[in-house]
Design a binder for these strands. Structure first.
Lengths: 338, 338
DNA sequence: TTGTAAGCGTTATCAC
DNA sequence: GTGATAACGCTTACAA
């Protein structure tokens, strides 16, 4: 492959002049510019960003470390990230951690070696090891979707606690008194936070006695299994709160298998909506998080840290959660009352 | 940040010795190894892959260039790619082209500058410019999901033509004689290929007279609009074939708005299934492409090209498409007969 | 407006 | 087993 030297030789100039032409930087005559341009075209020269980055200390690459791109919430978020990044001339490296701290730390090691300019991190666990690792290399991080207690850092997220509180209150207003929550892994910040919102609502309604919390995973299987558990209780809950989209689907399938109709026999509300182009009947009452904007905003904040144009001090940006009331939340069935 | 020099100084050895320890390469005494290890730990040394890659000509990075990660087909494919890549110690740069040749070419330029070791490409258009651009830099490419006519290259895909043919034949066997196909952009290989499969089935059934083809986009909006168009015909089709998942959702919504029931009033079949954890009622009869495996296989093929352990000559791997018959395809309504 | 020299952090080659 | 030297391809700093 031709190098900048080859181009320089061909154009009868010095390498640095070629560099200036490529980077539209510094002065050079129209004539030189053309000669260099011609040489580049003739040789099919492609600049080597490795060498460039080695000198300039900038790779124009950021990393997006999340738990699973397969979850539509993160898919959409990733798209927001990529759009904002590409607009600014940055590329995105994608890493899936599957909520594993080990995978997360491994990826971060590699990313730091790669000299990424910044990292968007959805922390797998509520511990702070990862952030500290990144900080040691003085690489900017923005934490997305979750929080890392005890660590000062930039964060872009939604307030799950409040939204959960609202969702559960909606059920309470419909007359439900026995509501079970199906959550994810206890070590995952949002899983825990959504349970907290549920608990606050229940306690304010003096219903701590019927509080029913299931931890599990943020997937369909877990939603399915915990629903069967919950419905085996006596008395069974009259409403379920699924702490994410996959859990809600699993819950729905379990309920249908048991011959229970939603919302006639039981109500179901959930965190996370599915994109409209995925669903034939929008049916679930959900707390919708603007994931695209979350990705976009997080990226913009990260990029602003690189150009040092950002305000001093860490920022915590909280995006609004929208409660979308649809058919899955109904009034409590008279016959189910305890 | 400390460099290999600093580590060497601290450990009282030469840089190259440190390099050997890091890379578990060449001989060195246990004692040296330990001293170096200690120095690395004390300084918090992180090797710079930029410098490493500049010498070694390997970045351990591949690119995944697709049209839109937001489409579950590609999301799952991307996950397959990432899993296979990370297993082999490679990272993945993600690029969305939105079916735009311009965006695609821009990304490829940048990726080549970045010296990615290989590229997985879902070509936006059926032209071959992109492949030629990549070839000029002698970077391995594997084309995924689509084909680039007139270009010899590695390809991993499904045969859409055959699957479409089967899907349409299924409708024919159910008695449908007037079937419309709702496809994507004519310049997109799969959009065109799926229409071809439809046409073959129709022609073999001597139904070329009722052939009804709508091109549009691979999105919900287009499915919605073209369905309204199709249903305005007199006589209206008794079955619709949506050429991708988003189109089928749009079609379904349009039909429901018109008060038409699926499959009682009209049948609907589609290309691409949605992952089970996205759908409460699996209802659509679809052609399912194993997108995860597609991503995985494509990555493995690409990586094998890097280590030159691959067989000579280009490979075209065709993965099987599974027809999943569900409720959306029903027998033709007696009253609708022409 | 253009050129020279040095160096970014690593590893290949050859020497001891 | 270990080290000296050069080189990867580019850009910063300084000169002309």
């Amino acid at each position: 492959m031709p190098t900048i030297q080859d181009v320089a030789k061909r154009a009868g100039v010095s390498p640095i002049t070629v560099s200036r032409v490529i980077n539209h930087f510094g002065y050079c005559s129209q004539q030189t510019r053309e000669r260099v341009g011609a040489a580049i075209a003739e040789l099919g020269y492609v600049p080597n960003s490795l060498a460039r980055s080695l000198r300039s200390k900038r790779t124009h690459t950021i990393a997006l470390v999340l738990t699973d791109i397969t979850n539509p919430f993160f898919t959409t978020l990733a798209r927001g990230v990529e759009d904002a990044a590409s607009q600014a001339g940055f590329m995105v490296i994608l890493c899936n951690t599957d909520e594993s701290e080990v995978k997360e730390l491994n990826y971060l090691q590699l990313l730091l070696q790669k000299q990424v300019d910044g990292i968007l991190l959805v922390p797998a666990v509520t511990e702070s090891k990862s952030i500290q690792l990144i900080r040691r290399q003085a690489v900017p991080v923005v934490v997305v979707d979750r929080r890392v207690p005890g660590i000062e850092t930039d964060v872009v997220r939604c307030n799950s606690e409040v939204a959960s509180y609202q969702l559960v209150n909606l059920l309470l207003e419909l007359g439900h008194r026995h509501i079970a929550v199906l959550s994810g892994r206890k070590t995952v910040f949002t899983a825990e936070e959504r349970v907290r919102g549920y608990q606050r609502a229940m306690r304010e309604a003096h219903l701590q006695d019927t509080e029913t919390v299931y931890y599990g995973e943020f997937n369909q299987q877990s939603g399915y299994e915990n629903t069967r558990q919950a419905m085996a209780l006596d008395p069974a809950p009259t409403a379920l709160f699924a702490a994410n989209n996959f859990i809600s689907i699993g819950a729905f399938k379990a309920l249908r298998e048991m011959g229970l109709r939603v919302p006639e026999d039981i109500s179901l509300v959930a965190f996370d909506d599915l994109p409209p182009s995925f669903v034939m009947f929008p049916f679930l009452t959900v707390a919708y998080q603007p994931s695209y904007e979350m990705g976009k905003k997080a990226t913009e904040l990260l990029l602003s840290r690189l150009s040092a144009e950002a305000p001093d001090g860490y920022q915590e940006i909280e995006l609004p959660v929208e409660i979308k009331v649809r058919q899955s939340s109904g009034v409590v069935r008279a016959t189910v009352s305890i």
